[in-house]
Write a protein that binds this DNA or RNA. Structure first.
Length: 539
RNA sequence: GCCGCUAUAGUGUAACCGGUUAACACGCUGCCCUCUCAAGGCAGAGAGUACGGGUUCGAGCCCCGUUAGCGGUACCA
């Protein structure tokens, strides 16, 4: 299937091509004779693009495609272009565009040119079609348009193909006399424009990820370039824009591989050299179906992660590992390291599964993603960054105090409390929800913790008394608090653990958390003793 | 139906030119810490590389076939 004879020869000295091909030495396909090698000349810089269609929020798969394009551009000093493919006016919305832009910004992907809106280029697209017709490379098809029902297209395609027994049907207008064709158009007869696909031979290109791709021309029908209402179709628009924007490398989902053959035909018909192509494996849901907004809901949307306390660095790191690996055991990597290590060679060909379970709230999204987030929160990020993230988290939860921002004792307290809490944090929500008791006096008490640790009324009485002792304790330190509690437990004839767990429940409302004396120090003597004296709040 | 792609523990990925008992991480289980834990430490289970042939002294890596999944097959993008 693959052989290695070809690679050194094809890479040549072209920097753009080299960057692309050398990445993939081990998988470089053979058949260099017939494969195009990209349009690059010696000095042509790398230009990539991310081209989402604004029909919804930014999807995990799209975010990954954007990321890979971005990493590739950054690694090779190339240019990243953002193009919004809004030609489908029915489905495109400004809101989606905004949401996509926001998503990219959140995850830290920027672009050097754009955003360009594809709808602004329809004249160019039509112009290209006119040229193709004039050159005899495309023709007018006067067949009346058949209504297509979006729901059943898949089934219809299969049925039609079956009916044709896999044979390509020759369009009756393909060889219509050009004069006759022009006359009928003049007369106002509606027509679509189709590309004249060669009837013989094969279409071949070398995909940087998947290797040589060959298909018989017979399997490609004369594709429509322009609808009968005059609007250009996707494959045409993409090619015209990519030519205009001088895109050198197209990195996108592998659901486009068969489009690639068609697009290359268009490039050639237009007299342009196609760029290099690298297709990415898809991302599936646990049931092995394509991850989709409609079917799987918010779990596929980037904004969900932002809203549920993910750190963008962590999420970016996590999706970078979906279908790509640096080839080493490294997993937690800085952006710089990601850029440095990224290569198309490291892209896997098998589709990746994004694991999550709607049933279990603790694994509402992929466990590894959650783990990655916890890694960033607890260790990978510098203290400064964590402080900023927690600040905005607390602000939106209405728990922020401006005293934390100015130099002084409150700020120091804020920083040390965050440092204590980050070890156990999985999401930013843990700071505002799970650890509310550190920022506010009204916090809920976990019913299970209450039942387990405060079930005995005597415990509550003892804790109240302990609170009194704490209020007079001087100094109030880790050591004195611990010895006081332990001595008090001895006197009362209960195990220290009973008072410790009871304290934690009253002080934080939670059954888990940092060591109790650290918690007490963070809360300070006042709040510690008052909360113990007051006892558990009623809900 | 036709065309194409893919196949390594539950998941994400390793395994240089074929060469020890197929590695790492997540998750899972257990133990320890005993002041809890969703934290930390330690240990463990879990694949013989989809299946069947072939080549070879030797195959997860090469060849052939089968199966399954997926993508495409549209006047959608």
């Amino acid at each position: 299937m693959l052989n290695r004879c070809a690679r050194k020869g094809t890479a040549g000295s072209n920097p753009a091509v080299s960057a692309f091909n050398l990445d993939r030495t081990k998988r470089q396909a053979s058949a260099c004779l017939f494969a195009f090698r990209g349009p690059h000349t010696m000095d042509e810089p790398i230009r990539v693009r991310f081209a989402p269609s604004p029909t919804g929020y930014l999807h995990i798969g799209s975010a990954r495609t954007a990321l890979f394009n971005w990493l590739f551009a950054r690694k090779h000093g190339g240019t990243m272009v953002l193009r919004i493919e809004d030609t489908d006016k029915q489905r495109s919305t400004d809101e989606s565009t905004r949401s996509i832009l926001e998503g990219l910004e959140w995850i830290g992907i920027d672009w050097d040119e754009g955003p360009f809106y594809q709808s602004a280029n329809v004249d160019r697209h039509r112009g290209a079609v006119e040229r193709l017709v004039a050159d005899g490379k495309a023709y007018r098809d006067f067949t009346p348009r058949q209504a297509t029902d979006d729901r059943t297209v898949k089934a219809e395609i299969a049925d039609r193909a079956r009916a044709n027994a896999g044979e390509k049907v020759r369009n009756e207008y393909r060889d219509l006399d050009p004069v006759e064709s022009a006359r009928r158009a003049e007369d106002g007869e509606a027509f679509a424009v189709r590309l004249k696909v060669p009837e013989q031979g094969e279409s071949t290109f070398v995909d940087t990820v998947y290797g040589e791709q060959t298909v018989d021309m017979k399997t490609i029908e004369d594709l429509v370039l322009l609808k009968s209402d005059g609007s250009p179709l996707y494959n045409l628009s993409v090619v015209v824009d990519d030519i205009d924007m001088r895109i050198t490398h197209v990195i996108r989902g592998r659901d486009h591989v068969s489009n690639t053959h068609k697009q290359i035909l268009i490039y050639r018909a237009l007299g342009a050299e196609p760029p290099a192509f690298a297709h990415l494996p898809l991302i599936f849901a646990p049931d092995r179906s394509k991850l989709s907004k409609r079917k799987h809901g918010p779990v596929v949307s980037l904004t969900t992660y932002r809203d549920r306390g993910f750190v963008p660095e962590a999420f970016r790191n996590f999706i970078a590992l979906l279908g790509w690996s640096p080839g080493t055991d490294e997993e937690v990597m800085t952006l710089e390291s990601l850029v440095e290590r990224f290569s198309l060679e490291g892209i896997n060909r098998a589709d990746a599964i994004f694991n999550f379970s709607e049933a279990d709230d603790r694994s509402w999204t992929d466990a590894k993603g959650l783990w990655m987030n916890a890694e960033y929160l607890s260790k990978a990020l510098p203290e400064e960054r964590i402080a900023d993230l927690v600040e905005s988290q607390l602000r939106s939860a209405g728990l922020w105090s401006d005293e934390y921002a100015v130099d002084g004792i409150r700020r120091a307290w804020f920083r040390s409390t965050v440092a204590m809490l980050r070890a156990r944090a999985r999401t930013l929500d843990d700071f505002s929800i799970g650890n509310r008791a550190f920022w506010a006096d009204d916090y809920p008490i976990d019913p299970k913790a209450r039942a387990k640790n405060l079930g005995d009324p005597r415990t509550i009485e003892l804790l109240c008394e302990l609170g009194n002792q704490f209020s007079a304790l001087e100094p109030f330190t880790l050591e004195t608090a611990e010895s006081t509690l332990r001595a008090f437990a001895d006197e009362a004839g209960v195990k220290a653990g009973v008072l410790i767990n009871g304290s934690r429940t009253i002080l934080t409302g939670s059954p888990v958390g940092p060591g109790i004396f650290e918690v007490m120090m963070a809360l300070g003597r006042e709040r510690t003793s008052q909360r113990l004296i007051r006892g558990p709040m009623d809900e």
